[in-house]
């Protein structure tokens, strides 16, 4: 008995630092966010009076919030599928056994080492209407110069393109790892049977890669819903709120307008969106995913 008490105590001791920190910086703030979302707050973030679901009711009517939900969903659509398709193509290429392939693997994964801030500053200059390379190329090809980041029609796409580039490195590295885990004898059999590359891709590679694809898709989706840095640097949510994605909207409401209660309501919405995505992914995709 004494031994088991000692064991219990020791276990708790090792767990304690993690759970103390989780309690302060994850569990408490999650509950607190919920609490603030049903209150009005003063500019220091103290709740003043209970308003129930008033913030949420207002969110449903608020044109700005609807715009930010729309921008977020479009942004996810513009970034996640292209990232996965491009990263998968690069991973398939980099999985070929040719000389010097390690160099290409390193190059393809390099954007993983790029910070959002540095990447955004580079793309900001590339999009510069007067001296940026993108307009230079377009005019050289006989096209028209554009104010990529200042035009509501192109701003979100421009930010999305930059984001796809930033995310390629991570998705590539994970997908390449998944490809390398596939048993190579399967390919040798396919070779003997003389099947085409596309057939092999469809019948062997993609099904066996599906757990990895599933993981990358989930992570990319969740990541896309949390986008902030590139918006803050490239567009500040403009022009005309075209790029105000949900996290930017939370940031502006809380830390520029000091409207903590209303911002918390948006944070609650973000939490449920991410939760929903995770659940849907697990429920729907899990059944179709092929585990080895």
């Amino acid at each position: 008995m004494f031994r088991s008490v000692k064991q219990n105590f020791e276990g708790m001791l090792y767990i304690f630092p993690s759970f103390l920190l989780f309690a302060i910086f994850v569990f408490y703030p999650m509950v607190r966010t919920g609490y603030l979302s049903v209150h009005m707050t003063d500019f220091q973030g103290n709740p003043t009076n209970f308003v129930g679901l008033e913030h949420f009711r207002y969110l449903l009517e608020d044109v700005n919030f609807q715009q930010s939900v729309k921008a977020t969903l479009l942004f996810v659509l513009y970034t996640v599928p292209p990232t996965i398709i491009i990263a998968l193509s690069l991973a398939l290429l980099a999985n070929e056994k040719v000389k010097g392939i390690q160099l290409f693997r390193t190059l393809f994964s390099s954007t993983l080492g790029m910070s959002v801030a540095a990447s955004s500053v580079i793309w900001m200059f590339m999009y510069n209407p007067a001296i940026g390379v993108i307009n230079r190329i377009i005019t050289a090809l006989g096209g028209e110069e554009r104010q990529w980041l200042l035009n509501p029609d192109t701003a979100l796409i421009a930010v999305a393109v930059a984001t796809v580039w930033m995310n390629i490195g991570f998705a590539f590295l994970i997908l390449l790892g998944g490809l390398q885990n596939i048993d190579s004898s399967l390919y040798e059999n396919a070779k003997i049977a003389g099947v085409s590359y596309m057939y092999q891709l469809r019948r062997i590679t993609i099904p066996l890669l599906s757990p990895t694809l599933f993981f990358v898709t989930t992570v990319s989706l969740i990541h896309a819903f949390q986008t902030f840095g590139q918006i803050d640097i490239l567009t500040k949510g403009g022009p005309m709120n075209a790029t105000t994605v949900i996290v930017y909207s939370i940031y502006r409401e809380a830390f520029i307008n000091y409207n903590f209660g209303f911002a918390s309501a948006q944070a609650v919405v973000l939490f449920f969106i991410v939760l929903l995505v995770t659940i849907v992914q697990f429920a729907v995709v899990e059944r179709k995913v092929h585990y080895q």
């Binding site: 569990f27 999650m30 939370i250 991410v274």
Partner: peptide, 27 residues
């Protein structure tokens, strides 16, 4: 180590991965 509530605590650890950092940034 064997201790009370180990599985529950492990489950809670995994559950923290479901909470986006941005959703808790205000508190």
């Amino acid at each position: 180590l064997r201790f009370w509530g180990r599985d529950v605590l492990f489950f809670m650890t995994i559950a923290t991965m479901l909470i986006p950092w941005e959703a808790t940034v205000i508190p």
